[in-house]
Computed example of a mutant assay.
Amino acid sequence: MYYLFEELFFPPVSEADEEGILAIGGDLNPERLKLAYKSGIFPWFNEGEPILWWAPDPRMVLFLDELIVSKSMRNILNRNQFKVTFNQSFKEVISNCQKIKRDGQNGTWISNEMIDAYCKLNEEGIAKSVEVWQDEVLVGGLYGIDLDHVFCGESMFSKVSNASKVAFIALVEYLKKENYKLLDCQVYNPHLESLGCREIDRKEFMFILESKK
């Protein structure tokens, strides 16, 4: 495992251990974060612990044409009970992702330091959000890093049933329209699998990431 200091550097993703951890340490300044995502790396760690940088193999992704929208979900979308916006309330979205309770988790990996870092990236137009509203109240959303041809999803939240799915589907529809190649979902979970995401080899992921739009 590599230990990072002030130098703006990451080792090749092939150096990651079996868990997918590539490096430890460093900081969350915007330049390091931008280099990380462009290199197929992302931070994921608990508050109060050193920063861990990940490049897992396999990688959970969504090929945009493989999105699964259930019949019941289509019915919900057709009712127009939600309004979707893009990149209108980034800080509110990431703050809700931090606060939302999740099954099997006692805390959150989204620290205040991380919120500050990603808000700076949002100001640069790199970190973006999708918001879902119901009666003018923010009830769901997601955020991630936009690399122009790959969108790296980071976290999503839902305060009412299906709100995060609405955000996810809206994001995929936008990415398809803009000819993105992939939605990066990082690591496996069954909820993502139900939406059509699947695991691919890290080499395949890196090939797509390093190709141009």
Results as ranks from 00 to 15, higher is better:
residue 72 S to Q: 00
residue 201 D to K: 10
residue 63 F to H: 13
residue 201 D to Q: 09
residue 143 Y to K: 00
residue 132 V to Q: 01
residue 126 I to Y: 06
residue 4 L to G: 00
residue 140 G to Y: 07
residue 1 M to Q: 10
residue 164 S to K: 03
residue 171 L to W: 03
residue 35 L to F: 09
residue 142 L to T: 08
residue 13 V to P: 14
residue 113 E to K: 02
residue 121 L to K: 06
residue 38 K to P: 10
residue 171 L to A: 04
residue 208 I to L: 13
residue 203 K to R: 15
residue 190 P to K: 07
residue 59 R to Q: 04
residue 197 C to L: 01
residue 34 K to L: 12
residue 212 K to P: 08
residue 209 L to I: 12
residue 114 M to F: 15
residue 80 N to H: 10
residue 136 E to I: 04
residue 67 L to K: 12
residue 192 L to K: 01
residue 47 E to I: 11
residue 169 I to Y: 05
residue 5 F to K: 14
residue 54 W to V: 04
residue 80 N to A: 05
residue 102 R to T: 03
residue 44 W to D: 04
residue 77 L to Y: 08
residue 97 C to M: 03
residue 154 E to V: 01
residue 106 N to S: 13
residue 154 E to N: 00
residue 195 L to Y: 12
residue 193 E to W: 01
residue 84 V to M: 04
residue 130 V to R: 05
residue 42 F to C: 04
residue 187 V to L: 13
residue 155 S to V: 01
residue 198 R to H: 10
residue 118 Y to Q: 08
residue 76 I to K: 13
residue 161 S to R: 13
residue 210 E to N: 14
residue 107 G to I: 03
residue 147 L to V: 03
residue 41 I to C: 10
residue 209 L to N: 05
residue 39 S to V: 06
residue 97 C to P: 02
residue 20 G to H: 07
residue 97 C to H: 09
residue 27 D to W: 08
residue 6 E to H: 10
residue 178 E to M: 15
residue 58 P to E: 10
residue 188 Y to A: 04
residue 169 I to E: 12
residue 11 P to I: 04
residue 61 V to L: 01
residue 180 Y to I: 07
residue 1 M to Y: 11
residue 178 E to A: 15
residue 64 L to F: 07
residue 58 P to W: 09
residue 148 D to V: 13
residue 103 D to C: 03
residue 73 M to W: 05
residue 29 N to M: 02
residue 189 N to M: 00
residue 6 E to R: 13
residue 55 A to E: 07
residue 42 F to E: 00
residue 92 E to L: 10
residue 50 P to G: 07
residue 123 E to A: 11
residue 66 E to Y: 02
residue 95 S to D: 05
residue 58 P to N: 14
residue 183 L to T: 05
residue 206 M to F: 07
residue 85 T to W: 10
residue 6 E to Q: 11
residue 18 E to S: 07
residue 122 N to Y: 12
residue 136 E to M: 12
residue 177 K to I: 02
residue 90 F to Q: 05
residue 201 D to R: 12
residue 45 F to N: 04
residue 196 G to W: 01
residue 11 P to E: 01
residue 136 E to A: 14
residue 69 V to W: 01
residue 72 S to T: 15
residue 125 G to I: 07
residue 210 E to F: 13
residue 133 W to I: 08
residue 131 E to V: 14
residue 168 F to V: 00
residue 117 A to L: 03
residue 28 L to V: 00
residue 207 F to D: 13
residue 210 E to W: 05
residue 110 I to M: 09
residue 137 V to H: 08
residue 98 Q to D: 05
residue 87 N to V: 03
residue 12 P to S: 14
residue 176 K to E: 14
residue 110 I to G: 09
residue 63 F to L: 11
residue 14 S to I: 13
residue 108 T to C: 09
residue 29 N to G: 12
residue 144 G to K: 07
residue 3 Y to R: 09
residue 102 R to L: 09
residue 153 G to A: 14
residue 68 I to K: 15
residue 19 E to Y: 09
